[in-house]
């Protein structure tokens, strides 16, 4: 299907190559600067590279225990993702595949979560978590990010609605239960969009700063964005480390994104609904 695309398509592709090269240049530029000592970045910003080394990375990985932050972020991400995909695909499926009154109301109800700034509801939710004894505990972050289903429900429900009705009916005639239909037939069909949802919410969860800032105090439980802001808060006085932590927190996840996203999402779907 690749032929006969015409000049316009060729032009767009050429443009895409340029655009993407610009992004790669920026990533490369961050990486290059992250290998320089602070004095070079500050007072010889555009000069010839001298003294490139991995010192900045050494400091982050050894002194700051970067991989502990990475592990915490990964645990929170995976657990939140499983909870989120489970809840949102169930809900979206319920909205999309069945007829009932108040359906539009339910749609809007699930959108409300997007409409308020997260800083606003923080005190009530803090009180809930503190009653549950979950302050300074990853579970609070997981519960909050795993139940924030507004966007996934909204996006998934329209995809579920688009799936062919005949399959559901055929399966019902074959005697399959509601759950079986959902799990064995519908979810696999929806995989491309579940994947899209997974990717976009993963980034949000991975990058979230405010919730862990409030709910996690112990260094042992802190996540990567908290380490990133440690160095970006005083950007100029720790610019070398700020750049290095940006690379460390971006490149591994990009590699995972490029090569393994398919497998991870299979796993998450399995964890969430195939059980």
């Amino acid at each position: 299907m690749n032929k006969h695309q015409g000049k316009a398509a060729g032009f767009i592709k050429a443009f895409l190559w340029i655009y993407c090269s610009f992004i790669v240049f920026i990533l490369g530029y961050i990486t290059y600067n992250s290998l320089r000592p602070k004095s070079q970045i500050l007072s010889n910003t555009f000069g010839k590279p001298t003294g490139l080394s991995f010192d900045n990375y050494k400091k982050l990985i050894i002194d700051d225990k970067f991989f502990r932050y990475f592990g915490n972020s990964a645990i929170i991400l995976i657990a939140s993702l499983v909870l989120l995909i489970l809840l949102s695909s169930l809900t979206a499926y319920g909205i999309a595949r069945y007829k009932f009154k108040m359906k539009k109301f339910v749609r809007i109800f699930f959108l409300i979560g997007l409409m308020f700034p997260v800083q606003l509801g923080i005190v009530p939710i803090f009180l809930i978590m503190s009653k549950l004894g979950l302050i300074n505990n990853m579970a609070s972050v997981i519960l909050i990010s795993g139940t924030n289903v507004s966007m996934p429900v909204f996006m998934l429900s329209n995809f579920f609605a688009g799936l062919p009705k005949e399959m559901q009916e055929a399966a019902q005639i074959d005697g399959a239960g509601e759950w079986t239909i959902f799990q064995k037939i519908m979810m696999p069909l929806a995989k491309p969009v579940v994947m899209a949802v997974c990717i976009t919410v993963s980034v949000q969860i991975w990058n979230q700063f405010f919730i862990p800032l409030i709910f996690i105090q112990s260094d042992k439980l802190k996540t990567i964005p908290l380490l990133v802001t440690k160095y970006t808060n005083n950007l100029m006085s720790s610019i070398n480390l700020a750049l290095a932590i940006s690379v460390l927190s971006t490149i591994p996840i990009l590699i995972i994104f490029i090569f393994f996203s398919n497998k991870i999402i299979d796993g998450v779907m399995a964890g969430a609904v195939k059980g």
């Binding site: 645990i75 657990a79 499983v82 909870l83 489970l86 809840l87 549950l132 004894g133 979950l134 300074n136 505990n137 990853m138 579970a139 997981i142 519960l143 112990s218 042992k220 439980l221």
Partner: peptide, 19 residues
């Protein structure tokens, strides 16, 4: 789901019990 949550609670309590 409930189990899942209690597992999180249990495992991430580590940080807390620690203290």
């Amino acid at each position: 789901a409930a189990l899942l949550m209690s597992v999180f609670t249990a495992c991430s309590k580590d940080g807390k019990t620690d203290k």
